[in-house]
Simulated scan of single mutants.
Amino acid sequence: MSASDLISPITGTSGPVHLPAAEDWMQGRTLYGGASTLLAYTAAKREYPDLPPLRSAQVAFVAPVGDTVEPRIEMIREGRNVTQLRSELLVDGKPALSAFFVFGTEREPNAVHPAPKADPWPGAPEDAEKVPEPKGKHFISNYELRRAQDTSGPGEPVVRRWFRPKTDHGLDPISLLILIGDTLPPGAMRAMQRQGPLSSINWMFNILEPEPTTRDGWWLAETASDHAGHGYSSERLRLWNADGELVMVGMQAAAIFG
């Protein structure tokens, strides 16, 4: 099912919500980060439909999110230009995800400094090698993936992939960025001494382009570990469009098990 099917039961009203499409977006025993964050964002937008564009978010993945959630929205402050609110997903009455969203109207720019294009440039996605799909049920099956780096296996803790959704999810541009912005595994997977599970603890991101577009649905994503040790990794996340223009940046703490 599409991501639109996943969020369609979210109405902006209180009470538990059952998600029939959750099974297609699971990562182990929880909805993967982009899908669960999209639920929290959708709940906020449907309760407050006149919010300005999303600029930034801080998300805590507290506990597994399954096929039944209860959204809880709290307006923190509504200023002249910036609105801040908290959106939580409750499971069995307890927070499983807590997101703090910052929305802001566009202003006359006083500082203009466009982000540099993707470097090193991996070449066009159409020319890249396809990545095999994982075995079994996994949210990544919703995407077509292609390689965007020469290295594979252990090595520098950076993961780069071209990817695009297999279907049109019918999402607005910002909802699509939220869905896809946390797609890749942590870069620290390349520095692991033995195979084991990894889990995102949080996700902070900034939206650089409020109306992002790309070519033929392709996006270039990167996760890179700045430091891994003591069972955790500090990760940088970046997302470019098919022309190498940076549209989203983020940071994340990941738990490295095993």
Rank of each mutant, 00 (worst) to 15 (best):
G250Q: 02
I140N: 10
S152I: 14
I256K: 02
L90C: 01
V59T: 15
E222M: 13
V17D: 05
T167F: 12
S200Q: 03
S175L: 01
S200N: 13
V158N: 02
A128V: 05
D172V: 06
S175F: 03
G244M: 08
N81S: 15
L208Y: 04
S98C: 14
A128G: 06
N202Q: 05
R160H: 07
L89I: 02
A148T: 03
V91T: 10
G15E: 09
R238Y: 06
W218R: 06
T214I: 07
F61T: 10
P173N: 02
R161W: 12
D5E: 12
A111F: 08
D226W: 08
T214S: 10
Q252N: 08
E108W: 03
E47W: 04
G181I: 02
Y41M: 09
W219K: 06
A111C: 08
L145K: 07
S4M: 05
S36F: 00
V65G: 00
M26I: 07
G231D: 06
F257H: 13
R147N: 09
V159F: 05
G79Q: 03
H169L: 08
T151F: 12
V158I: 15
A253T: 15
L39I: 08
D226Y: 10
W240L: 02
G244L: 11
A22W: 00
L51P: 05
Q149E: 13
R190W: 03
G79D: 01
R72G: 10
A96I: 05
G244Q: 07
R80F: 10
H18D: 14
V62F: 07
P122K: 00
W240K: 05
G15F: 10
G12H: 09
R80C: 07
L85H: 04
L184D: 01
A96N: 02
G12F: 11
V112Y: 03
K130S: 15
A96K: 02
P186M: 09
T42E: 09
L39P: 01
E70D: 10
R147F: 05
E74D: 11
M204E: 14
A22L: 01
H18I: 13
V249G: 08
G155N: 07
E235I: 12
K45P: 01
E144M: 06
P49M: 11
I174Q: 00
A191Q: 08
G229Q: 09
W162Q: 06
G217W: 07
P186D: 08
M192I: 09
L237D: 00
W219A: 03
G136L: 12
G123Y: 07
E133R: 04
N241M: 02
L237H: 06
V131G: 01
S233Q: 01
T37S: 13
P9C: 11
V159K: 00
A191W: 02
S233V: 01
S56C: 07
S199N: 13
I7G: 00
F257A: 14
R194T: 12
Y41C: 02
G187V: 10
E222H: 10
K166R: 14
I10L: 14
L90P: 03
S234L: 11
P116Y: 09
P173T: 03
H230S: 15
G33N: 05
Q84R: 15
H18S: 14
V249C: 12
G66Y: 02
P134I: 08
D168Q: 11
A57E: 03
Q149A: 06
D182V: 11
K135T: 14
H169T: 07
A3D: 00
L54V: 04
P49I: 11
T11S: 13
N110L: 14
A99H: 00
P95F: 10
E133T: 04
P95M: 05
E74F: 03
